[in-house]
Simulated assay, not measured.
Amino acid sequence: MHKYLYILLILVVTMSWSQELNCNVVVNAQQTGNENVQVFKTLERQLKEFVNNTQWTNKSYKNQERIDCSMVVTITDYDTDRFQASLQIQSSRPVFGSTYGSPTYNFNDKDFSFQYLEFQNFVYNPTQFESNLISVLSFHVYMILGIDADTFSPNGGDEYYQQAQTILNYSQQNNAKGWSLQDGRQTRFILIDNMLSPTFEDFRNVLYSYHREGMDQMSANPKAAKSTIVESIQLLQKMNSKRPNSFLMRVFFDTKSDEIEQIFSGGPTVNVSDLISTLTKIAPMHSSKWRNINF
């Protein structure tokens, strides 16, 4: 009896500490000409352990519930312990009734400089700056969590966006690029500022309706699901009329353009003439894909 209780206790503890992310982390140093230097391999291993083993929330995730994502750190230059890089982040969420993962976040963070000594400890502090390396990674982890939560419940990502905002606030003391309004229009600052702004509340509504009311219904009623997705995209037109060419619009279509092209290039037919017109207007950079939507 005691043996079974002991096994049950181990299972409960394991489940309660299951981490939130299933993240593939790659450090690519080819541009430095020294990609085989050991420090890059150590950095990759430590980053992978940090992202996947840190407890980012107080919620319990089963292994099959962990969010699939990837982070590719491309080192462009380094000198001793100082590194210049870019960071490509992608994540997806499962679609109900299928084995398909719908992309939810696709962000190329070009303002990524950091200091790193081989084997240094990686510690995340939710209220205090540790290093720019930790801050940038943690910021994007909470963006992944926030967007994922928004796709499952209306405004479900609030607490995660608030934590991303907290990270931004205490990281500004470091004076590294990407944390300030003065750093440009396609930065971490602009991203979280827009996500929390009432001006862009339609964007978060779209995240929910597109995924929960659209994609998750595809296996049961694909035609109705596609019509819901059309309505979701039309809602972005409303947002665009208030703030044309917003950064959030670019982030959305960088993430979803391939999927939208595939959804409306096969399967049950729905009226897409207005959709194509809307897509061409609000996301002209992907017009070659919209031309493939031909029925």
Rank of each mutant, 00 (worst) to 15 (best):
F264W: 03
L145T: 04
C23L: 07
L236S: 07
N174D: 15
K256D: 01
H140N: 13
S232M: 02
V230A: 05
H211R: 02
L43S: 09
V39A: 09
M285E: 12
N132M: 06
P94A: 03
Q237I: 04
V270L: 06
G214S: 05
Y210V: 00
Q128T: 14
F189C: 06
W179M: 09
D150V: 02
D111P: 00
T74K: 13
R188W: 05
R204T: 12
L196K: 15
A220D: 15
D274R: 07
I147C: 00
K223F: 00
N108T: 09
R82G: 05
K226Q: 04
E35T: 05
A149V: 00
G97R: 07
F96R: 14
N240R: 04
K59Q: 15
L11H: 09
F112R: 02
N294L: 13
Y160H: 14
F200Q: 03
W17P: 01
N22G: 03
T99V: 08
R188S: 14
F122M: 15
L21H: 03
S265E: 02
F83H: 07
I192G: 11
F264G: 02
F122V: 09
M218H: 04
T32I: 06
Y208L: 02
D254H: 05
M143Y: 04
K281A: 10
F200T: 13
E261M: 06
